[in-house]
């Protein structure tokens, strides 16, 4: 929070405004960072451009066979350069019983590139500090730590007029993480406490100024002995109603979670931006 205030102070000339082209903020991922639904992209949230800032908030739900993940959060972006975010996740164990919650504080910095304009992709680095709020269960199944920091490097680029006159967005993200099931099952394990490098990617085609369809893939480590962890994937439709409101729906496959295999279902997210 202090950091955020400092940022705003240092750039007191920045105004609350939305000069960027619609869709260029992506949507807010379940971790609170701008991106797709499960992958953080190099884009900065909202539609503010240079000398501007914007705020956004989101609420989302993923309902798969035996679990429900509710996420909600807020974020601010500055100068199309900095992104700060906070999200709370509640993972309900519908079949097993109980819930697992974690807080995620994220920061992202755009290093170079302009998503729409430069040949160089837009490249950003980011960090997500995650802290578990119900660590007893993850500890019982072998997780080592209650909190962890994910670091990532993301590259995103839009090719205008790429396929049948439509614009194509491709994103690749490399993430260093210790998280089990993105942190919902804690960090590290009894016999491993090192960072693992994971690859994540998304592709989206903008069918109109307001509608995008795409796919995502998220590689995941598999560290806990008690149950297999698998990669995540989804296929999504995002509707950018205007610069203030977007809705994303996805069909998602989260693989095996805590011994319950083939977790598939729907993802729905509502996002506001100012």
């Amino acid at each position: 929070m202090k950091f955020l205030l400092l940022l705003l102070l240092f750039s007191s000339s920045a105004v609350l405004a939305n000069s960027r082209v619609i869709g260029t903020g992506g949507v807010t991922s379940i971790e609170g960072s701008a991106g797709g639904g499960i992958v953080p992209w190099a884009v900065i949230n909202g539609y503010h451009s240079t000398d501007e800032w914007s705020a956004n908030s989101f609420i989302s739900r993923v309902s798969v066979d035996d679990f429900t993940l509710n996420s909600a959060g807020v974020g601010v972006g500055l100068n199309n350069r900095w992104e700060l975010s906070y999200a709370r996740q509640q993972f309900k164990l519908d079949t097993i019983g109980g819930q697992l919650r974690q807080d995620i504080v994220g920061v992202k910095y755009r290093l170079t590139g302009e998503l729409l304009y430069t040949a160089m992709p837009q490249i950003s680095i980011g960090a997500q500090y995650k802290r578990h709020l119900d660590f007893d269960l993850p500890a019982a199944v072998g997780a080592r730590s209650r909190d962890g920091v994910d670091l990532y490097l993301a590259a995103s680029k839009v090719w205008l007029d790429a396929i049948a006159g439509r614009n194509l967005l491709l994103n690749a993200t490399v993430r260093a993480t210790k998280a089990n099931q993105t942190g919902l099952l804690g960090f590290g394990s009894d016999d491993s406490n090192g960072y693992k490098l994971m690859f994540e990617s998304s592709a989206a085609l903008l069918l109109t100024h307001h509608l995008a369809v795409g796919v995502e893939f998220k590689q995941k480590p598999n560290q806990l002995a008690f149950a297999d962890e698998q990669h995540w994937r989804d296929i999504f439709v995002a509707w950018f109603i205007n610069r203030n409101l977007s809705v994303t729906a996805a069909y998602t496959d989260l693989g095996s979670i805590a011994g319950l295999s083939s977790q598939q279902g729907w993802y729905l997210s509502l996002e506001g931006s100012w």
């Binding site: 000069s19 960027r20 082209v21 451009s49 240079t50 000398d51 501007e52 199309n80 302009e114 729409l116 304009y117 205008l160 007029d161 049948a164 006159g165 439509r166 614009n167 109109t208 100024h209």
Partner: peptide, 30 residues
């Protein structure tokens, strides 16, 4: 600034939308 450029691009899109230029042609120009 990038903001000036962003705003001009948005204005151009607005005008092309008003004139019913097909989305694919808009993207070709952009």
């Amino acid at each position: 600034t990038t903001r000036d450029f962003d705003r001009l691009v948005n204005h151009l899109i607005t005008v092309m939308q008003q004139r019913d230029i097909p989305y694919s042609a808009q993207n070709r120009l952009l």
